[in-house]
Each structure stands twice: as structure tokens, then as C-alpha cells.
């Protein structure tokens, strides 16, 4: 197997993901409307309630709108990661997952390629959102848009890997709504996406601890700092560590010899 083989495989998985995304216009708009609603309604309402003091990486007082944008960017990636894992479960039930897995390339590579394809789609959404946020008046330094790219790649992969791991635990599509409630909302609300950590500490020291340990908080901070041309080393290490952990566990879960299929049977046997 040559490098060209691997490249052709990766490219075709990304192209397919992109095409599928473009064909589902509703999905595109839904993915975009969600953070915009937060920005245009929630942020405006919260502007008065929540004063944000000067905290790194910001150098002046900022409006709440500006604070919340990196959090909403991470939210797009969180929803995308979960959406992808949902589509993995769907593909598993519908059988198109089998087409992917019958490829002669190593399975870990197929999973990583699938993950990268999902992240590519999510990054496209993020930049469209950042463009609209710019029109809205949230203007990070121009170079920040470039500096955020590696951070977005890393956080997108980490959240996607978490989704992938979750998808291996979910037996059927119907069970997925529970996962959304038990994963997405706690991760989003117990994080620094919508309010700074020091504000959470004022409310509840316990919740603060939870939020500080939340990988999603780390993803948000990684993106926030990079967007303002700073590096949050702690967040970088956290996100990288979580990525390795989640991806490793997901690869094990999908391993043909050890994974869940060998024990439970494939889609048809379960039916």
C-alpha cells in the first residue's frame, strides 16, 4: 500500500462527506442558525446581565458578544462531532458503514479519515459563522483567523473522536437522543463557552471544578486564545491528551477482533 493509496482513500472520504453535506441544505442552515440564534438573541439579552471583566486573552473590556463567539465556534464543533457519530450509528444500521469498512486499508486509518472529513465540514461552518460574527461587530485580529485553524483542527478532532467513541456504545439510533441530552448539554453548560470560569466559581465551586476538568472548556479556551494570537498551553495539552485517549478507545471499540460487533453481531444479525 503506497502513500498515494492512502491519499486517494482520504480524499474520497472527504469529498463524499462534503457532497453529502452540500446536498443536505437544511443541515447546513440548521448548523449555522443555531450559533447565530445564540449570538443574536442570547448574547444580546445577556450583554446587560453578564459583565465580563478583563481576562486573558482579552486586553480590554469586551462585550459579551465578543466573549461568547469562541464558545459558539466550539459549540458548532461539538454538534458536528455528535452529528457525525449519529451518522455513524445510522450508517451502521443502514449498512453503508460496511462499504467503508470493507476497504483494504487499516481500520484505524478509515476511522481517522472519516473523522477528518467531519472536521473539514465543521471548519467550513465555523468560518462562515466567524464571517457573520465579523459583520456583527466581533472582530478578532485578522491573523487570528489563520492562527485558529490548527486549534479548530485539534478541537474538532477531539470532539469528533468523542462522538466516534460514543457511537460505538450506542446500540441503536433510538438510544441516541439520550446521549445528546447527557453529553451535549452538560458539556456545553458546564464549560467556559457561555460564561467565564470565575463567574461559575462565584456560583458553585463544585461546578467550577467540573467545568475546569471538562474537555470542552479546554477546547473553547484553545480556540479563544488562538483567535487572539495567544497559545493556552494547558488547553493545548488537555485537548491533545483527550484526543489521544478518545481516539484510541474508539479505534479499540471498532477493532474487528475486540470491538462490539464481534460480540453483538453486525447490523443484520442485530435486527
Amino acid at each position: 500500500m503506497s502513500a498515494a493509496t492512502y491519499w486517494c482513500c482520504l480524499r474520497s472520504i472527504i469529498v463524499r462527506e462534503g457532497l453529502r453535506f452540500l446536498h443536505q441544505r437544511e443541515r447546513f442552515f440548521a448548523a449555522l442558525v443555531r450559533p447565530l440564534v445564540w449570538l443574536a438573541i442570547f448574547a444580546v439579552g445577556f450583554r446587560a446581565v453578564l459583565g465580563v471583566s478583563i481576562i486573558p486573552p482579552y486586553e480590554t473590556y469586551i462585550l459579551y458578544d465578543e466573549y461568547v463567539v469562541p464558545g459558539l465556534v466550539a459549540m458548532i464543533q461539538l454538534f458536528n462531532g455528535m452529528q457525525n457519530s449519529l451518522s455513524m450509528v445510522y450508517d451502521r444500521e443502514m449498512g453503508s458503514m460496511r462499504t467503508l469498512l470493507v476497504s483494504p486499508l487499516p481500520r484505524w486509518y478509515l476511522l481517522v479519515a472519516k473523522l477528518l472529513a467531519g472536521v473539514a465540514v465543521s471548519i467550513a461552518q465555523v468560518y462562515v459563522f466567524l464571517g457573520i460574527a465579523w459583520l456583527w461587530g466581533v472582530e478578532p485580529p485578522p491573523l487570528g483567523y489563520l492562527a485558529a485553524l490548527p486549534a479548530l483542527l485539534l478541537s474538532g478532532l477531539m470532539l469528533g473522536a468523542l462522538g466516534l467513541l460514543l457511537s460505538s456504545f450506542v446500540k441503536q439510533l433510538e438510544n441516541f437522543a439520550g446521549v445528546m441530552n447527557f453529553v451535549i448539554f452538560p458539556m456545553l453548560f458546564a464549560s467556559s463557552a457561555l460564561y467565564p470560569l470565575w463567574r461559575i466559581r462565584e456560583g458553585s465551586p463544585t461546578l467550577y471544578q467540573i467545568a475546569a476538568w471538562n474537555p470542552f472548556t479546554q477546547a473553547v479556551e484553545l480556540i479563544r486564545f488562538s483567535l487572539y494570537l495567544r497559545v493556552d498551553v494547558t488547553a493545548l495539552l488537555w485537548v491533545t491528551g483527550c484526543l489521544v485517549l478518545f481516539l484510541g478507545a474508539a479505534v479499540l471499540a471498532y477493532d474487528p477482533g475486540r470491538g462490539f460487533w464481534a460480540r453483538r453481531g453486525g447490523p443484520a444479525e442485530q435486527a
Partner: peptide, 11 residues
């Protein structure tokens, strides 16, 4: 094309 790519075939 998707399937060909999965098998590492050039476009």
C-alpha cells in the same frame, strides 16, 4: 468514485 477511492484507486 467514493468506492474506488476507498480502495485507493486514482481518480
Amino acid at each position: 468514485r467514493y468506492h474506488g477511492g476507498l480502495h485507493g484507486m486514482a481518480p
